[in-house]
Design a binder for these strands. Structure first.
Lengths: 333, 333
DNA sequence: CTGAAAGCGCTTACAG
DNA sequence: CTGAAAGCGCTTACAG
């Protein structure tokens, strides 16, 4: 049924090697080239990827390992990677780790078996197991979202995001603030953003009370954390480590009948599309997920080609003042 | 560096075929099995997928073609497929068609080349080109979300979704309604939902004005459409063909200072997570995207195994009354 | 420019 | 239960 290179060779009256050479742009006379062109077209010839890969021992596949498929950040990043990989004539293979660290390790092994040209990994945390697996894979592994001294990475300026957010809310007059973060095991989201925020508070000089809380990334958990915060310390503002967490806090505020931002100000990090759609629109910091994906794809291709790249590429973030933070400096009515 | 089956055979002092048989669960004596077990483990042997596929001419890959990566429905469906495919020892390969019909066709050819065991396709519309490509692919193609007389499919009960929505809003007393739909080229979303809604209106018997409008799936377009609707026919309720469209309408309402649902009721279809989070929570119909993905994976595996399945599997939807529809029957204050 | 041959790593009848 | 051999469809030196 499906034609092989031998069939084509026979039909054209040439050797298999000639056909192969033609297919791969090797030296072929104009005449045979023309003939082969016609015949492959008419026969609807498509090369067998496996046979190619078996010989060539590599593919133009880029493996992407994501923590989950249904997150805004992951979706944007994948879209960026896909666009760039496709433009380079390759293909993206997505591996869903389902938020389990072991499956990230497994994924690297599996993708290495499939001889992908490179791997883009979006981990919540980089462990020694990751480093070992990356080493063993024998192919370039590029991190997105988390940095590492051992592996190449594309990261966001989480520290600056926290700093910008801190400066802004302080400048709006907030002095009694709850910071709803996530585990510091997550260096980028849990640690850096908070550090930036703390430094903004420190540089402000004035008295400012900050109550630190922790939640998971889940909206449901964020709602519970918000209950606790409101019961315990009644801040004028809750700074949330991600937009999703902020959405949970917004929900709790609504349920308690608190109006935003008059009675409670709320901020997020991320810049998810939904932050502009909800009312009031959420003040946040936009992270360039899509651009990070495109860049990551380009970099991993370079790595695969043996080129040198920077160990760590830091992408800038953009502060987005919207409507969910009250200005406490305005003259009271 | 990486061990092949020949290395293992040599190390164990047996023939390659014996190793292969051991690996594939063929008949091997207990003694050699034990020996091979140890040796493959110690050598860290991993079979070369390409060589396997080259011989076997098939893989345990399931190809999934999605219109886009960053949609709630697509993400949920992919997650469901992935979970099930993985449980069956296979792997899901995602192909992003970027909302271009031609790329859906391309994807089928490409996936066929890669000898995936089956393809799950989520098209906006099934065209003759799709049917031809599916035919030519020579492997099972299962549709999700849109039905077809030629191909197997898993579809949602879009008609019933529209019917339930229509009955509910009429029962709440709405008689001046805008229906903001999408192109009827999209049979499921554009046509069936609207038909269900229309039939609900018909069976109600009473006078009811329905103004039909059309938008794309984009939030920005939905916002514009909402402007037009509010200017032209001031309905008490806007029924939107998807939750995303509803979000756009909600935004417009907020910007105009209309309170929901008192001054304008709004509904969606889909049951996206965000509909519960926003305030007021959006009344909608929940579509079982995740379950559809799981089911699709099971069915495509059956198809690949040569089993018979129903031509069209219809999944039930669930009406979700939340807060965005006003009850006009309540005694006025 | 062209062809014959070997080989990539595996599987699969076929004998024994 | 085990082994020798052929072959999957391609690529790649090596001669010519």
């Amino acid at each position: 049924m499906t034609k092989t290179i031998s069939d084509i060779a026979q039909m054209a009256g040439v050797a298999k090697s000639t056909v192969s050479r033609y297919l791969n742009g090797g030296s072929v006379s104009a005449k045979t080239k023309q003939k082969l062109e016609r015949i492959t077209r008419e026969a609807g010839y498509v090369p067998n990827t496996f046979a190619q890969s078996l010989k060539a021992k590599r593919t133009n596949l880029i493996g992407t390992i994501v923590p989950r498929l249904d997150s805004f950040a992951a979706a944007q990043t994948m879209t960026g990677i896909d666009e760039e990989v496709r433009a380079a004539g390759g293909q993206m293979l997505i591996y869903n780790a389902g938020q389990e660290r072991e499956r990230e390790i497994e994924a690297m092994q599996e993708l290495a078996r499939q001889k992908v040209a490179g791997i883009i990994l979006m981990p919540a945390r980089v462990t020694p197991d990751h480093l070992r697996a990356a080493e063993a894979a024998g192919i370039p592994v590029l991190l997105v979202g988390q940095g590492s001294d051992q592996l190449h990475s594309v990261v966001y300026d989480d520290y600056r995001a926290g700093l910008l957010m801190g400066r802004y809310v302080l400048q709006q007059g907030h002095r009694r603030i709850a910071y709803l973060g996530v585990t510091e095991d997550d260096e980028a989201v849990g640690l850096r953003r908070k550090e930036g925020f703390r430094d903004a508070v420190a540089e402000c000089g004035e008295d400012c009370e900050v109550f630190e809380y922790e939640s998971s990334f889940k909206i449901a958990d964020a709602r519970l954390a918000a209950e606790r915060i409101l019961d315990e310390c009644s801040p004028t503002l809750i700074v949330c480590a991600t937009d999703n967490i902020a959405l949970g806090v917004v929900k709790t505020a609504h349920l308690r009948g608190l109006s935003i931002p008059e009675q409670l100000s709320i901020t997020g990090f991320g810049g998810y599309e939904v932050t502009e759609i909800i009312h009031p629109a959420l003040t946040t910091v936009r992270f360039p997920y899509f651009e990070a994906g495109k860049l990551a794809a380009r970099l991993v291709h370079k790595l695969a080609a043996g080129e040198e790249i920077e160990q760590r590429t830091i992408l800038d973030v953009e502060f987005l003042a919207q409507e969910s933070v009250d200005n406490l400096n305005k003259p009271s009515v």
